[in-house]
Design a protein around this nucleic acid. Structure first.
Lengths: 109, 109
DNA sequence: TCTATAGTTCGGTAATTAACGAACCATTGA
DNA sequence: TCAATGGTTCGTTAATTACCGAACTATAGA
């Protein structure tokens, strides 16, 4: 896995971004990055197989929600906050604050 | 079709709402309501079969994005702006303004 | 009552998605 | 060089989704 593809800012698509954010597990991942900053896959507290996690991480990256930086054997995930803000002002903030202020609602899912 | 089910404000779920908004056709429907106000299904300029439209309208309603009011033989769709704002502040506005300021991007889809 | 109109539901097909484990690749450190 | 660790990819299976046309329901108006 040499090349990790990241769409350019101009190529971000609203439906794709919304779709990426419409899954409870991916929302959890995004929120955890938001709260804890850039971090490796290993770190995430999600109850799924690691291959499944990898797929979710890929979808977030290909939608342009996250950036993946390779450091040694780690992939460090961060949010593309500025790109998202430039293309979809207020969106990420609205999603994250709704999510984080209603966490109990999502635990059941 | 007697009872149209609308989830109560408290039952709105973020992932469900995001999913409802993640489809180009549904975004188009939502945007058209936003711009033209409450209107009947008949009115929408989408290039899909009416049964397909009905399915999309149902998904929007069941996600809590739209309200459907029955008047004669018409179903008038409106946005649940206040409920959405109460539960997910800023979300609908962010989605609609991104969508509407990037319309050319979506026409290709 | 009959017809036209607005919209939903049903049934079917094709495509997509979601998840997993197993196998794999790449890097680090011994 | 070998083992361990961190992640990805592949192949499979099961479930969901998307879309359509045909048939249906309900209301309005002649």
């Amino acid at each position: 896995m040499k090349l990790l593809h990241h769409p350019s800012r101009d190529d971000l698509m609203l439906p794709t971004v919304l779709y990426a954010l419409s899954d409870p597990i991916r929302l959890q991942i995004v929120s955890q990055i938001h709260q804890g900053g850039e971090q490796a896959c290993k770190n995430f507290e999600v109850s799924i197989a690691k291959s499944t996690f990898s797929q979710h991480a890929r979808m977030l990256r290909e939608a342009g929600v996250t950036h993946t930086r390779v450091v040694g054997t780690h992939r460090l995930l961060s949010l593309r906050t500025e790109d998202l803000e430039a293309r979809f002002p207020g969106l990420l903030h609205a999603v994250l604050s709704s999510y984080e202020s209603n966490l109990q609602e999502h635990l059941s899912k």
